[in-house]
């Protein structure tokens, strides 16, 4: 194990990595100075501390870190749907019940996560500006609440739900083996996937077309290029070392379609990937 080659590798994909872990690179200097004195066995812990500093998250077992990350995303989603329900004229009557259901779930997820975290829970007011979000994501989106632009609202909802699914999926390894916490996270994860499926169905019906499907096809099937980053990697076909695009469908006698290969597996996003997607709204 060569920690310096690892850091070099990270720098190739994240040029600011060294600045991220320490503006003056003290962390690296410190590792160098005490590196010769620590046993090799201690290095994983030293690395863990580095990554926590860099990405605000430790490795396996940081239950509170994982749950607080989830809570921040649920605060965002709950506020998003609460704002929508408090904007008369935005949601058509036919879809009101669905968004009441979804909002109730997101608010319940907030309450549940706060109860689990207790005093360790981050506060809602720590997010955005004193708890108020910027729904235009720093001006990159139109002010769909003010103009009652349901189409744009649905695209944002679509992206929030799919991204939530990806974020929970990415956190699962950090709480592996924890029966209570992992099971709860999985039980939230699948609810977000149900929401995503339904919002995609609303969009499909609204457009009287065949897209978007209720499942994710390839990388960004939302028809909105501005949220491509939320779908980065969804076109992956390598699963656990198996190239699923090479498998034969016994029903047809041919390989599975490219669409089926990507639709059948939802892909995770890491904390470091999710944060830049939600920071413009005010998630901290």
């Amino acid at each position: 194990m060569n920690i310096f080659s690892i850091i070099e590798e990270i720098e190739k994909v994240d040029p600011e990595f060294q600045d991220r872990i320490s503006p003056r690179r003290d962390a690296i200097k410190n590792i160098t100075s005490f590196g010769s004195k620590v046993a090799v066995a201690a290095l994983p812990f030293a690395l863990g501390a580095l990554f926590k500093k860099a990405y605000g998250q430790t490795t396996v077992g940081d239950v509170n870190g994982t749950l607080n990350f989830a809570l921040k995303l649920e605060y965002l989603e709950a506020a998003f749907y609460n704002t929508a329900l408090n904007t008369p004229g935005l949601i058509p009557a036919a879809d009101l019940a669905a968004f009441q259901t979804i909002a109730a779930h997101e608010n319940a997820h907030v309450s549940f996560l706060k109860a689990v975290l207790g005093s360790a829970a981050v506060t809602q007011t720590s997010q955005g500006t004193a708890g108020v979000y910027d729904w235009t994501a720093g001006g990159t989106l139109p002010n769909y609440f003010a103009t009652k632009d349901y189409t744009t609202f649905l695209i944002v909802a679509n992206a929030f739900e799919d991204t939530g699914v990806r974020a929970y999926k990415g956190q699962a390894p950090f709480i592996i083996g924890n029966q209570t916490v992992l099971t709860a996270a999985l039980n939230i994860h699948s609810v977000e996937a149900r929401h995503a499926s339904h919002i995609r169905t609303i969009r499909r019906k609204a457009g009287n077309g065949t897209t978007p499907k209720s499942w994710i096809t390839g990388a960004n099937d939302t028809g909105f290029a501005g949220i491509a980053a939320n779908y980065a990697g969804e076109d992956n076909t390598m699963q656990g070392g198996v190239d699923v695009s090479a498998l034969i469908n016994p029903v047809t006698g041919a390989k599975f379609s490219a669409s089926a290969c990507t639709e059948a597996f939802d892909e995770p996003l890491t904390y470091a990937q999710v944060l830049p997607l939600v920071q413009p709204f005010g998630v901290k």
Binding site: V165, L186, W215
Partner: peptide
């Protein structure tokens, strides 16, 4: 995890 959310999408559909 990659499979279960697809099942949940099916279930909702």
């Amino acid at each position: 995890g990659k499979i279960v959310s697809v099942e949940a999408r099916h279930a909702a559909f």
